[in-house]
């Protein structure tokens, strides 16, 4: 051939998700500048994300806060229709089969929204306890839901996601007795994979969201405007 070959090495040293991470950092800076508190909600399908969000949006509005939500779903727009009943601006992100949200999808769906007018923006991720763990969305807080109808050891089965949580919500607590939910075992599993992570209990259908809402207000640094308002 008249040519020599020699094995060579090209150093790259770059994160595979560096593009998403960079976009997420840009979003985080935008959210900070607009002083909007952004919550990324993650759980298995059926853990109660949409119900929790529906009630959370209504109650935060009743407490005088401006709220909006982006809702990720594999194929349908049902959740957005459901959430629109809360009166808050809602946009659906249909991922067409992609099992997680990425920062670029969030950025694309914010167009035309005045972020500075919002106190809270919720991002309901696709129901999945694996894939969304890898994708930073620029959120202020990542909240992982565990419902009492799931196994108490779920955090041990999906440690990466629970490890990445800033807060864990135990949802459907009104069903705890009926499902013989072992609260201590669940707490032990959560804290095994994420020592010290705060855990808050909710029962959205019964309107028991106070501890969660108060925590949101504290973290966001906003005050409840109308103490008389309630569910």
């Amino acid at each position: 051939m008249g040519e020599n070959t020699r094995p060579r090495l090209l150093e790259i040293r770059q994160g595979v998700l560096s593009k998403n991470d960079r976009l997420a950092q840009e979003l985080r800076a935008r959210f900070a500048a607009a002083r909007v508190f952004v919550v990324n909600l993650v759980s298995s399908p059926g853990s109660g994300k949409t119900t929790l969000l529906e009630r959370t949006l209504s109650q935060l509005r009743a407490r005088g806060h401006a709220v909006a939500a982006l809702v990720g779903d594999l194929a349908t727009e049902n959740d957005a229709r459901r959430l629109a009943r809360s009166g808050a601006p809602i946009r659906q992100i249909v991922t067409d089969g992609i099992c997680h949200l990425e920062a670029a999808m969030v950025a694309a769906h914010l167009e035309g929204w005045d972020l500075a007018a919002l106190d809270f923006l919720f991002v309901e991720n696709v129901g999945n306890l694996v894939c969304p763990a890898s994708y930073d969305l620029g959120e202020s807080m990542r909240v992982v839901l565990l419902s009492v109808t799931e196994g108490e050891d779920k955090p041990l089965k999906y440690p990466t996601m629970f490890h990445a949580a800033d807060l864990v919500l135990l949802t459907k607590m009104d069903l705890a007795q009926a499902t013989e939910f072992d609260r201590e075992e669940a707490l032990a599993a959560i804290h095994a994979v994420n020592p010290g992570v705060p855990v808050v209990e909710t029962a959205a259908k019964k309107g028991r969201l106070d501890a969660w809402l108060t925590l949101l207000e504290e973290r966001a640094g906003v005050k409840r405007a109308s103490p008389a308002a309630g569910g």
């Binding site: 070959t5 020699r6 060579r8 090209l10 790259i12 994160g15 595979v16």
Partner: peptide, 11 residues
Amino acid sequence: LEIVSLEYTDP
């Protein structure tokens, strides 16, 4: 989750 390097053989 990081790409470290490429090995290649170029003529």
